[in-house]
Structure formats: structure tokens, C-alpha cells
Computed example of a mutant assay.
Amino acid sequence: MNAIDELTESFSRLPGIGKKSAGRLVNFILKADTSYVKKFALQLNTLQEKIKPCSVCGTWTEDDPCPICTDTMRDRSIICVVEQPQDVSTIESSHEFNGLFHVLGGVIAPLEGIGPDQLNIKQLIKRITEEKVSEVIIATNPTVEGDTTALYLQRMIAAVSDIKVTRLASGLPVGGDLEYADKLTLARSFRGRTEV
């Protein structure tokens, strides 16, 4: 295996990158300016040294605690619980939420050997009991594992506090067509309907 094949193999291990895309990336790098390639390699080489999980919420950050946790303008009474650090960026890009976050680090998935003890649930319960939290928004993905995790969190929070626990609405996307919606999406849409 030569250097091109080795790099193609490495790129193809990235999520969403197949062999063809990996080959295109390698060819792009071969043709690119040497200074760009060196800078790119340095960024990759130092990424895990520079970026760590926030000690408070668990999102990726260079500064600990992260800028979200230290922002005094945010509503500290609301915590949005997400599965992964990249979910924080997704929600932040909507500019609809101004509270704090808590990253679980995954979902309960017994078939994969992931139980509640492997997630950052104890840290969430500690934050709820020690800070002045009035609402927890559960923003796990609308999957079987995400729903299981949300139900587990709801029960754990209810056992220690009487704060409001909500879940992000799920259902038909804007511009979606009923004809192409699956049964589960339609069922969630009916259950989550709101008065107009």
C-alpha cells in the first residue's frame, strides 16, 4: 500500500466519506499549495491537544469552562440536554435558545453496552440540585435510544426535583410533504400538535 492508498484509507474512515470522496480529498491535497497542506496537517495534529470537553457542560472548547458556561447574559435557569458536543453548535446556530447546555456523551443503548452510568447523567443531576434550574429541555434525537434516554432522564429528574422537564417537539419539517412522511413522524406530529 503506497502513501496515496494509506491516506485514502484514513480519509474513508471519517463519517460520510466514502472511498471516492476520500480519493478526491487526497488528489486535492496533492495539488494544493504546500503552505496550506502544512497548516492543515498542523491543525489536525494539534486539534486533540487544544480542544477538550468543558468541565461544566461537556461541549468542545479551548477555554475551560467554555464561553457558553461563562456568558453572564445567558439564562442560567434553563439547561438544554443534548447527546453530543456537536449538537450544541447546531442549536446555537438557530439563535433560538439562550440558556445553558449539558452534553450526555451519547444515549442509553443496551445493545451497544451503553447504560446510564456511561453517560454524564450524574453530573446533570448534580447541576440541577446545586444550581437554580427551573427547566430542563431534553433535546435527544427522536430515535428509540433518544426516547429511552429522555424517559430515563425525566424519571431521574423527577426523583430529585419538581422542576419543569420539556422535550423538543418533533414531527413534520417545514416544507415537508405528508405524502413522503413516515408513520412515526406522522404519529409524533399528531401527538405534538399545538393550538392555533
Rank of each mutant, 00 (worst) to 15 (best):
residue 117 D to Y: 10
residue 161 S to E: 09
residue 125 I to L: 15
residue 132 K to R: 09
residue 175 G to M: 15
residue 126 K to I: 00
residue 152 Y to F: 15
residue 130 E to R: 01
residue 171 G to P: 06
residue 155 R to N: 13
residue 131 E to I: 02
residue 161 S to H: 08
residue 186 L to D: 14
residue 157 I to A: 07
residue 162 D to F: 04
residue 164 K to F: 07
residue 129 T to K: 15
residue 181 A to R: 14
residue 137 I to R: 11
residue 145 E to D: 08
residue 129 T to R: 11
residue 128 I to D: 04
residue 128 I to K: 05
residue 169 A to Y: 12
residue 144 V to W: 00
residue 126 K to H: 09
residue 182 D to T: 10
residue 167 R to P: 04
residue 151 L to K: 01
residue 112 E to D: 15
residue 137 I to G: 08
residue 157 I to D: 06
residue 142 P to C: 10
residue 141 N to E: 10
residue 111 L to Y: 09
residue 160 V to A: 10
residue 110 P to C: 04
residue 137 I to H: 09
residue 117 D to T: 07
residue 178 L to P: 02
residue 172 L to Y: 01
residue 112 E to N: 14
residue 178 L to R: 06
residue 149 T to Q: 11
residue 145 E to L: 00
residue 161 S to R: 04
residue 136 V to M: 09
residue 173 P to W: 07
residue 119 L to M: 08
residue 140 T to E: 03
residue 127 R to K: 14
residue 138 I to R: 12
residue 160 V to L: 07
residue 128 I to S: 11
residue 126 K to E: 12
residue 184 L to W: 11
residue 176 G to D: 08
residue 185 T to M: 14
residue 113 G to E: 13
residue 163 I to D: 07
residue 153 L to G: 01
residue 118 Q to D: 14
residue 166 T to N: 11
residue 135 E to V: 06
residue 139 A to E: 10
residue 115 G to Y: 15
residue 113 G to Q: 05
residue 126 K to L: 06
residue 172 L to F: 02
residue 167 R to L: 11
residue 114 I to R: 07
residue 154 Q to D: 01
residue 177 D to I: 15
residue 144 V to T: 15
residue 139 A to C: 07
residue 116 P to T: 02
residue 164 K to Y: 07
residue 175 G to V: 09
residue 168 L to S: 03
residue 136 V to E: 05
residue 130 E to F: 01
residue 124 L to W: 13
residue 165 V to A: 09
residue 153 L to Q: 14
residue 148 T to L: 11
residue 134 S to N: 08
residue 155 R to Q: 15
residue 160 V to T: 06
residue 152 Y to Q: 05
residue 129 T to N: 12
residue 133 V to M: 03
residue 173 P to I: 04
residue 166 T to W: 09
residue 128 I to R: 06
residue 153 L to C: 10
residue 121 I to D: 03
residue 111 L to P: 02
residue 156 M to W: 02
residue 167 R to T: 13
residue 109 A to Y: 12
residue 171 G to N: 02
residue 116 P to V: 04
residue 158 A to G: 05
residue 137 I to M: 06
residue 170 S to D: 02
residue 118 Q to H: 07
residue 173 P to L: 08
residue 150 A to N: 09
residue 139 A to R: 04
residue 183 K to T: 08
residue 156 M to G: 00
residue 136 V to A: 14
